[in-house]
């Protein structure tokens, strides 16, 4: 396998608590993003997906969090130790960001065109050239009548159009990576389908790599090349869509079984017992053990297991991957 574009290894993120040791919210996160790849990041609410994303754009500190250890390699840079000066060369330039709520991500009192030009200015383009480029970008994200939309404010656009504008802002600087954190949550299914189609088209046209965060496995399956699954602040399985469809971690297997779209109408749906352990209450050993049907005494001792390969490009954090396969 050639060197990945982005390589997150053993990432540990915590929230500072004065004199007490930091509260660890992400631990042993590993993610490798290949060039031109659409990589799905899946997990329940609170599993640490958004924190991993924030570590890629240097906004952890806004939530009082910071990287405690591990590395986030983007080429020669290690973003885990980046200072603000380094972030200014990365955030919005090499890594673009699309937030969950486009209304929160866009400035309500600034026109769409002006917001785009703010991003465009980073590439050194100004004045009338920047105006032209803004319209071009809107056209690129398939917004009809881009000249008119450029003069409008975010509240005048529909949710789907706002999300298109966010994507236009994210690609304005020609980044290597776009991080899209639940970009279609709260949007209608038809709009969601259009946004996903757009994201795939933009990827194909520009060769950008995409990290797509979602808890919708059906969506991830349809759009992504590879998937990483997070549970309780850690990555438990990663692989291609096809590989993860035959899971080797019991959490992934349980997620797959709880999918409604694969169930017969009215049949009893399989659910996952309990809830992920809350941050600050992580017991020794595997953090899925309390929810796992195949947990053994060994699972509750020592460190949480790290991802280990089971096939080329397919890794699981379960030391008993064959048990999950046999149970399927």
């Amino acid at each position: 396998m050639t060197a990945p574009l982005l390589d997150i290894r053993d990432l540990r993120i915590g929230i500072r608590r004065g004199r007490r040791p930091p509260l660890v919210i992400v631990d042993k996160a590993d993610l490798r993003l290949g060039r031109g790849e659409i990589h799905g990041l899946v997990g329940e609410s609170g599993s640490g997906k958004t924190m991993v994303c924030r570590s890629l754009i240097g906004t952890l500190s806004r939530r009082g969090a910071s990287v405690l250890s591990g590395s986030v390699r983007l080429g020669d840079l290690d973003l885990a130790t980046a200072d603000e000066a380094m972030w200014r060369t990365v955030r919005g330039r090499r890594i673009g960001y699309v937030t969950q709520s486009a209304l929160a991500g866009l400035n309500p009192v600034v026109t769409i065109g002006a917001q785009l030009k703010e991003a465009i200015r980073q590439t050194g383009t100004t004045g009338a050239d920047a105006d032209r480029r803004a319209v071009e970008l809107l056209d690129r994200v398939r917004i009809r009548r881009p000249e008119i939309v450029a003069r409008q404010h975010p509240h005048q656009l529909s949710g789907g159009m706002r999300q298109r504008v966010m994507i236009a802002c994210a690609i304005a600087t020609g980044p290597e990576i776009i991080v899209a954190d639940e970009p279609t949550t709260g949007l209608d299914v038809t709009v969601q389908a259009e946004i996903m189609k757009l994201l795939k088209a933009i990827q194909a046209e520009t060769g950008v790599s995409v990290i797509l965060v979602s808890h919708d496995l059906a969506l991830i399956d349809a759009v992504c090349d590879r998937i990483t699954i997070m549970h309780a602040g850690t990555c438990v399985e990663t692989g291609t869509v096809a590989q993860v469809a035959r899971p080797r971690h019991p959490y992934t297997a349980a997620l797959n079984r709880s999918r409604i779209e694969l169930a017969a109408p009215g049949s009893e749906l399989r659910t996952i017992r309990g809830r992920p352990p809350a941050v600050g209450t992580w017991a020794p050993g595997c953090r899925f053990a309390d929810r796992c049907d195949g947990a053994r005494p060994d699972c509750r001792t020592g460190e949480h297991p790290r991802l280990a390969p089971v096939a080329d490009g397919h890794m699981t954090a379960c030391p008993f991957p064959d048990a999950t396969e046999a149970a399927a």
Binding site: E44, S45, H215, L255, S258, R259, I260, L269, T271
Partner: peptide
């Protein structure tokens, strides 16, 4: 979440 959805359904 999906698992909670399954529970509710």
């Amino acid at each position: 979440d999906q698992s909670a959805q399954a529970q509710l359904l």
